[in-house]
């Protein structure tokens, strides 16, 4: 496992739910997206249907990239249940000023150097919503954002 992606089991006793925690490094854009590759691997080993894995890992990927671009990194947590996958993304970035606007396809506040890499198309949050069954955004300006996404099987 690459450095910075230490998976930890949070619930030692609870076998109903497997939990993993990933530190998303905000200082190194070239490693962005690695946690979602790890997540995909884990989900495959559990044997979720490919479509479910795809939805969860794309949503996670978009969220992870967002955390790196906008919030200087953060923590991604994965909770695996028999019938659902929950991803919680927590950051201490600037927060989202207008959530409704941010959810609009094509709206983006990504800087130009990031756009040059092909990111910043304004599809991150809309895709996260599209690929998950439930998405909840808690955000406070200047404090940070917590996004909880659930993918049902």
């Amino acid at each position: 496992m690459p450095a910075g992606l230490q998976a930890k089991r949070v619930n030692e006793l609870d076998c109903e739910c497997l939990s993993y925690r990933f530190e998303v490094d905000g200082s190194n854009f070239t490693t962005a997206g690695e946690a979602s590759v790890q997540v995909k691997r884990i989900l495959r080993r559990i044997g979720f249907p490919p479509e479910t894995i795809k939805r969860a890992s794309i949503a996670m990927y978009e969220g992870e990239i967002n955390m790196v671009i906008h919030a200087g990194g953060g923590i991604a947590e994965l909770f695996i249940y028999e019938d659902k996958i929950v991803v919680v993304l927590t950051d201490h970035g600037p927060g989202i000023a207008d959530v409704a606007l941010a959810m609009k396809e094509g709206y983006s506040t990504a800087p130009d150097n990031i756009r040059a890499l092909g990111f910043g198309a304004g599809m991150g949050l809309p895709n996260m919503k599209r690929y998950t069954d439930i998405m909840d955004i808690q955000t406070a300006l200047g404090k940070g954002t917590v996004i909880t996404m659930t993918v049902n099987v």
Partner: peptide
């Protein structure tokens, strides 16, 4: 995948 069903796979994991 680790097991025949997800519950077993999760336990194994």
């Amino acid at each position: 995948s680790l097991g025949p069903d997800r519950k077993q796979a999760m336990k194994l994991m």
